[in-house]
Each structure stands twice: as structure tokens, then as C-alpha cells.
């Protein structure tokens, strides 16, 4: 099976700081890859390179046999790469529905003028995609808040809405940056269930950053460990957990 995503010896500098250094990683279709590592290891930087927010200093990124290293973020989204952020990046003044409808942007075709007249085509299109968005709302069990402004919601719910917005894009590769950070146990369990369902039912490939080793053990197929911008280990959760380098990286920090 050909890998869906190849991160080919990626290096990223910020002035004197090396955020990533020669990171190589393949991700197979349908896999859940967990990226772990101490604070400042370069995990978010890696996701930013994949979604196009950062341009690597060296190396290439190949998605579905197509080099995307130099594509702007919106082109990558159009190719099927979706993501959430470590610090929630929702549109706070808009409702849950509007946020999710924004997630449908690339699947809609109406332009400014037909939207302004709201006749026939634009109106039908809004309705069709509204229906799709409602499916996601059902799936995430957020029916009761669909008309609420996102800024008024509790943190855990916002995380869920942000996942919903990313799902609305129907990504084939979904990047989740600490989707469970700051959640209580129950919320974490819900989120883990949603993530597993997405992978299973939609066949979405997932890369997720997570600090909670319990969660990582439970849901990931593969784990990559970063430390100071280098990949120091890779393997199944069990393998990685036993790896002395990993133990050292974590103990060294704590």
C-alpha cells in the first residue's frame, strides 16, 4: 500500500531556533498517527508545515502522490487536508451552524452574485449543504447549540465544534492539534469515540497530537515521537512506550 502522506526530511528554522530537523514520516491511508513529544518539540510546527501555514526550510511534503510543499493553505484544504488548532480558532461571533457551513466552503460553488440574489441555485445549494452539516451536528451530538454563538460555549464544546467544522470539509487527511487538551475525563472519552468513529466510518486518515499517553495507547495505530525537532522514535504504541530514548526524553523534561 502506498503511503497517503510522505513527510520527506523536513527541516524548519525560525532564526536560530530549529523547530524541525530532518523529520521523515510516512502515513498510510486510514491510519491514526499520534505525534507525541515534550513541550516545544516541534509537533505543532509539523502540522503547520503539512497544512501550509509554515513553509519548511528544506524537505518535501507529498500528499496522494502530489508534491504540496509550496501550495498555499487554501489549496491544500481543497485537496482534502483539514485541521483543528491547539488554541481553538473558531469564528467566535458566528453561530455553530455558520462555523460548520464555513467548513463546507470548498464543496460549494455559488459565487457572490448568485448568493446575493439567493435565487434557485444558490438557495438550493445552501439547503443541500445545510443538510450535510446537520448530519455532522447529529454525529457530534451538538443539536441543542446549533444556533448559539460559538464564543458563548464552554471550552470542551468549542473543541467539539472545531472538530465539526474540520469534518464539514470532508477531509481525507485530518490533523488534530491536541483535541483533548484541557478536557475532563468524560469529555475526553467522548472525543476519543468521535475520533475513532471518524477513522472507522469515513476512512479518514488522522494525525493527532496528544499528551495523554492513555489516550494515545487507546486510539492510535502508529506513534511518532519528536524531541527538539528530531524524530527519536516510531512504532506501535507498545513499542514506543518501551523505547528507552522516549522514556529518557520524557523523564528528562519532568
Amino acid at each position: 500500500m502506498a503511503p497517503q502522506l510522505v513527510i520527506d526530511t523536513l527541516t524548519l528554522h525560525f532564526g536560530g531556533v530549529t523547530a524541525l530537523s530532518g523529520v521523515y514520516q510516512e502515513v498510510n491511508p486510514g491510519d491514526i498517527l499520534a505525534v507525541i513529544g515534550p513541550n516545544g518539540a516541534g509537533k505543532t510546527s509539523l502540522l503547520n508545515c503539512i497544512s501550509g501555514l509554515y513553509r519548511p526550510s528544506a524537505g518535501r511534503i507529498v500528499f496522494e502522490d502530489r508534491e504540496i510543499t509550496n501550495l498555499p493553505p487554501h489549496r491544500r484544504a481543497q485537496l482534502g487536508i483539514g485541521r483543528t488548532f491547539q488554541n481553538i480558532e473558531l469564528f467566535k461571533h458566528m453561530t455553530v451552524l455558520e462555523n460548520l457551513m464555513l467548513g463546507r466552503h470548498i464543496h460549494m460553488s455559488q459565487g457572490l452574485v448568485s448568493g446575493g440574489f439567493y435565487w434557485g441555485r444558490a438557495r438550493r445549494e445552501e439547503e443541500v449543504h445545510r443538510r450535510r452539516v446537520e448530519e455532522i451536528i447529529d454525529f457530534l451530538e451538538i443539536e441543542s447549540i446549533r444556533h448559539k454563538a460559538v464564543g458563548t460555549l464552554a471550552y470542551g464544546l468549542q473543541k467539539r465544534v472545531e472538530l465539526g467544522r474540520a469534518l464539514a470539509l470532508e477531509p481525507r487527511l485530518l490533523l488534530l492539534d491536541e483535541p483533548m487538551a484541557g478536557m475532563n475525563l468524560e469529555e475526553k472519552e467522548d472525543m476519543a469515540r468521535f475520533i475513532l468513529d471518524v477513522a472507522e466510518e469515513w476512512g479518514t486518515t488522522l494525525i493527532l497530537i496528544e499528551h495523554d499517553m492513555g489516550v494515545v495507547m487507546d486510539i492510535s495505530d502508529q506513534v511518532a515521537v519528536l524531541d527538539f525537532g528530531r524524530k527519536i522514535a516510531e512504532g506501535t504504541p507498545e513499542e514506543v512506550q518501551k523505547n528507552p530514548l522516549v522514556v529518557k526524553a520524557y523523564l528528562g523534561k519532568q
Binding site: S51, G52, L53, P72, P73, H74, R76, A77, Q78, G82, R83, F85, E89, L90, F91, K92, H93, M94, E98, M101, L102, G103, H105, I106, M108, Q110, G111, L112, G115, G116, Y118, A122, E125, E126, R165, L169
Partner: peptide, 22 residues
């Protein structure tokens, strides 16, 4: 509709807007 939401997305958070494909 679509274009108006995109305008507001650009205003509120342009990074998030761009990863939504805008």
C-alpha cells in the same frame, strides 16, 4: 450565504479561513 461567510471568516481569523479552503 457562502461568500458572506467567507468575508467574515477573513475578518475574524484569516489563518483558520485559509485552512477551510478560503
Amino acid at each position: 450565504t457562502r461568500a458572506g461567510r467567507a468575508f467574515m471568516a477573513v475578518r475574524d481569523r484569516d489563518l483558520a479561513a485559509s485552512v477551510m479552503g478560503i
